[in-house]
Structure formats: C-alpha cells, structure tokens
Design a protein around this nucleic acid. Sequence first.
DNA 1: ATGGCTTTGTGTATTGCATACACTTTAACA
DNA 2: TGTTAAAGTGTATGCAATACACAAAGCCAT
Lengths: 248, 248
Amino acid sequence: MPYTYEYPRPSVTVDCVVFGFDDKEPDLKVLLIQRAADPYKDCWALPGGFVDMDEPVETAAMRELEEETGLTDVFLEQLYTFGNPGRDPRGRVISVAYYALIAPADKQITAASDAQNVHWFSVNHLPPLAFDHDLILQTGLQRIRGKVSYQPIGFELLPEKFPLSALQKLYETVLETPLDKRNFRKKILSMGILKELDEFQQDVSHRAARLYSFDKAKYEQMVKEGFYFELKEQRSRETARKKLNPKG
Amino acid sequence: MPYTYEYPRPSVTVDCVVFGFDDKEPDLKVLLIQRAADPYKDCWALPGGFVDMDEPVETAAMRELEEETGLTDVFLEQLYTFGNPGRDPRGRVISVAYYALIAPADKQITAASDAQNVHWFSVNHLPPLAFDHDLILQTGLQRIRGKVSYQPIGFELLPEKFPLSALQKLYETVLETPLDKRNFRKKILSMGILKELDEFQQDVSHRAARLYSFDKAKYEQMVKEGFYFELKEQRSRETARKKLNPKG
DNA sequence: ATGGCTTTGTGTATTGCATACACTTTAACA
DNA sequence: TGTTAAAGTGTATGCAATACACAAAGCCAT
C-alpha cells in the first residue's frame, strides 16, 4: 500500500455511453458490457474504468473503451461528471462520463478485459444497470436529443455513405417524431453540406436510393462564414396555433 | 499521513466561473479572487477548492463559492471537467468546473477564506489567471453564449425587476450583436413569459421605463406543453441572401 | 416655463421560410 | 408482366422574421 496522502482522496473513473443507430430496425442502441468482476459481477454496465495518473481523462475514456469493447477512432465527447457519495459501494468514486457515437455497421465489437460480454441494447429495452449507470445513460440520451438539432453530430451515427432515408430515419428516431419526406430532403439538401455521390444502394429489393456523404470540410468552412446548422422537430400549424390561442 | 491506498489517486477540486452583467457599462463580468496562498500566490483565479469526501460535487462548488466570495443561492450548473496531467503544479488534480449566473446588484461580495481579494472583471479585460483557469473561463463563456439563445438563463443575470432595455442590452452583450428594439420587444412579449409590473424605473434622468419580471412558473408550465424558448442573433436579409448566392 | 436632451414605446409593409400534401418512377422478385 | 416497396419530386399557403421612423414622456438647465 505505497500511496499515502495527507488528506483522503476519491478515486476517479471514466464511463462511456456508446450510441449506435441501426436504420433497419430502426432504433437507437447503446453498447453495454457484462461485468466480469465484483462489484455488480454479471450485471450490465457502461464500459469504463479507472483513470491512470499520467493520462488525460479523455484518453482514459478512449483506452477503456478499446480495452473492453475493441472500439477505436470513435467520436467521443465529455458528457457530465457524476460524483455523489454512495454511487459506488467501493467508496468515493467520481466518474467523468463521455458519450460516443458510432455507426455499428462500420465497427467490430469484441468483449475483452474485465468485460465477459458486450452487447447492443435498444434504449427502449434496457436491462438493469450497475451503479448509477442508468442515470448516466439517460443523461447521455438527453444530451444527444438536445444536440442533434443544432450540430450535425447525427452523421457520426451513420456509415460514411448513406441514403437520405437513413438520415431521415435517424432524425425521426432520435427526435421521436415523424418528419415529412419532401420537406426533410429540401431542407437538408439546401444546406449544402452533403456530397451527392454517383453511387446507389446495393442488394435492396426495390428501387436503389442514391448515396450521400457528409462534407465535413465544407460544413466547417460554412460555419466560419456564419452558417448555422439547424434541423429540428417540425412544429405543426396545429401546435403553433394552440400556442397563441389555447382555446382552439 | 493517515490516508493510504493501493493505487495512486488524483485530487479532485471544483472551480466556479461566476458571470455577472452590468447594464450600465454594459458588459459581461466574471468574479475572480486573488489567491492568498501558494501556488500562484497573489495571482487572480476562479473561486474553488477541494471536494470533501462526504459531499456531492455540486455542494462542494456552492460551499467554496460561499467561503471565498460570500455568495449563496446562485444559479449554478456543471460546465466541464478539466483533468489534464500538469494543469496543477501540486500534482494530478482533476477539477470539475461549474458556472454561476448572478445579478451583481442583488448580491453582496466579500473576500474571505483563502481569497485575499475578490473583484469583478470584464470578460474583455482579464488579468493573467492561475492554473488553466483562462481555459475554463473561456469554456464557460462559450457555454453561456451557446445557451442563452435556447434557454431563458439570461434572466439569472438580471435583478428580479428589470426594464426591457436591460434585457435587450444583455442579449446584445452576450451575443455580441445589435438587436432591433421593436422586433426584440415584440418577440419577447409575444412569448408570454414576462410579467408586466405596475412599477417603473426610479432615479433616471429621462422617461422611466416600465419594469417586468420573469414568470418562471408560467415558463415551466409552457415548456411542459411544448413551448420552445428561442431568442437568437437576428440574421439579416443580407446574410441570408449571401448564403444562397455567395456572389451577391 | 420653455426648450433641449435622453430614452421609452409603438405599427406596418415586405419577404422568406416552414408547412401541408400525392403521384410517378424505378427496380426487384414472383 | 404485374405486384410490391421505396425513391424521388413541386407548389400553394400562411406565419413569422425583418426592416424601418417618429411621437410621447420626463428630467434638467436656463
């Protein structure tokens, strides 16, 4: 026990809420691991672990994610720090949570390290989770729901090349609202941040859709010039009217 | 040195970016303390300190804020966690940063604890800061710039009763853009989240403006019913036209 | 009291964008 | 070849954002 301090110190961990989108189902999924060790042995949990003394916190998140699930090169952003006393039976543990967005089809998942199992779960059918991981997960869900409308992070959940219908389904799923096809296409295309490809869907039993890709360089250029991404839930005229005159 | 652990542990601190608004100047201010102890003795810094083992992190932020500046009952939200190795010369210190919004006129400030001095600084005229506090402060600034447009947090920076011109100046200051008076008033009043008071400015050497207050209960009710606060930088027709046809 | 100064407070015409809405085209497969 | 499934496309309407200027109020100095 060589590490001695004048005052007590908490442990610091990282946890990752990894979101994935499947446009076949379609629903929003979260990657969970089944714990191989106590506490909460056999319970499902977010991938994560202790921060090393000489690594940045975000690096720790990426390292733990790779160790436990095999994932590398993912979009990763800090979510929130959870540090209530009592959230971990081992003592005072403060956890810096991150959220990641990946296109499951693009990435291979492998259980490793102290995960005995890794699995995608729909956010609507989650198992009981270890620690306060359900709170962390719900916080992540709120975050991406709030964020997709104002930042083009949704593209991180799609493969590099995708049909417009997949993008629309993604937005419909995350925002939990149907969108009008013509209006959606008109709006996203008018932004000019998509590259129209000369490629089409393969192996579909109906007319193949044209594929697009997100033009990140152009998007960043446009942001510099004052462009403002916005792709929100459509507010119907009904709703708008009610706002002004609640009696109908 | 009674605290001994099997693995090394970082220290965990909190830091607070306290924003205030002065509609006389008008500019956005930040509350800084002058450190009474090493490291960075005499240097200006964000109020903050170590998290106790048995208190929630947010409680630590409120406690340190009160100890060092005398402030209580302020709007406080978590901002971001800064934990790069090397950010503190005392060793590995991970800091959970919060930001606070207050109306300086409503609150009394008092230097105490290990602050030898407390002072409001304009965000445009900051002294050199201790640790990575400039990074934290800029992160806070970005956060409120991004957030005022979509959440009515601006009211936290005004006294309870305020004239519309103060609200407008606040938005102009935070968004760094002029706003049209008639359009601003039309929009904010049409939202129905302001209570029109039967009180007027006192001691002004011109026509006294009517005072308003933010109707928080009504706002929260409206949010439940699907209301969506939005008060953004106005995009001129010029700008909008350039977007579609860059050549003019 | 009068005129000057400062800030409040108000209305309308125009334009652009969001919305609502349905049918034809394409391609695979039976 | 016709059945099925999804892709792809245009327009009319209405609301909301914008641009814009002057009269009213109240204090102050003369």
